[in-house]
Amino acid sequence: MIGILLPSLVDGLLLGFVYGLAAMGLSLIWGVMNVINLSHGPIIAMGMFGVYLLFSQIGMNPYLALIVVALAGLLAGVLIYAVAVHRVINAPHLSTLLATFSVNMILIGVGTAIFTVTPYNVDFSLGSVSLGPLQLLGTRLAAAVIACLVTGLLYLFLARTRQGKHIRAVANNRVAAELMGIPSARALALSFGLGTMLAAIAGGLIATFFPFTVLSGGGYELRSFVIVVLGGLGNPLGALFGGLILGTLEGVIPVFMETTWVPVLEFVLFVLLILLRPSGLLARRV
């Protein structure tokens, strides 16, 4: 049993880092502005297609392409915030939900028109590494390392830079932050941009090892909701922790039962957490 449990656990953990990165974007946006971003899924898919296009059209290394995708994700987030979210930021939650859902539908519609729902694949391999009984895929190892790196950089940005401190101040008390002269609109736009940037990077990383379609982001968006609740609403580091838990579950559950049961157990866990610990395992704001 250990012979199958250990590789499954490690595979799940490696995948969990990327899940956590994707969920971190959702968590950051919720933590700063109390907005549930329903355009999260298509943005993950945009990240996948960004890496795919740069790799297949101009032959750019997928990991270099991630830098371009990250910048594009940041700009797209700021744009989405300015166009769809800013005017309804103080309205009831339903307004922001509908606004981001509209963006979701627009992105899926445009994506389907351009790429159809046909699967695509980034044909790139980093080989594999043997560690005793473990056979670790290079692309998954690289994805886990990059996810940790991005998490570290985000933490440094929020803790050490003026813009990061502005975001944290706005997240704690927007009115007080504005009274202290902090431009809250800019901080909110930057937060939304950072959230979409994280989603796009996660999408780009996933594209290096799994095939994808325009609709693939939906599954990762659903997982992100579970992870955000698991890790604690509004806590980006908690999201990474939640991602690791979910990835581990996805790796280990199939050892004991058919994979069809994985989503069943994931969402049972989701309901139990909402009932027993609605603030999540690591509830803390940005």
Binding site: I4, S8, L15, F210, P211, G251, T260
Partner: peptide, 20 residues
């Protein structure tokens, strides 16, 4: 003897089972 859902992209768990 095991099935995977249509649309599966991650075969890691199946490959681990095959190996075992």
């Amino acid at each position: 003897f095991e099935g995977y859902d249509s649309g599966t992209t991650d075969f890691g768990s199946f490959i681990n089972k095959i190996e075992a």
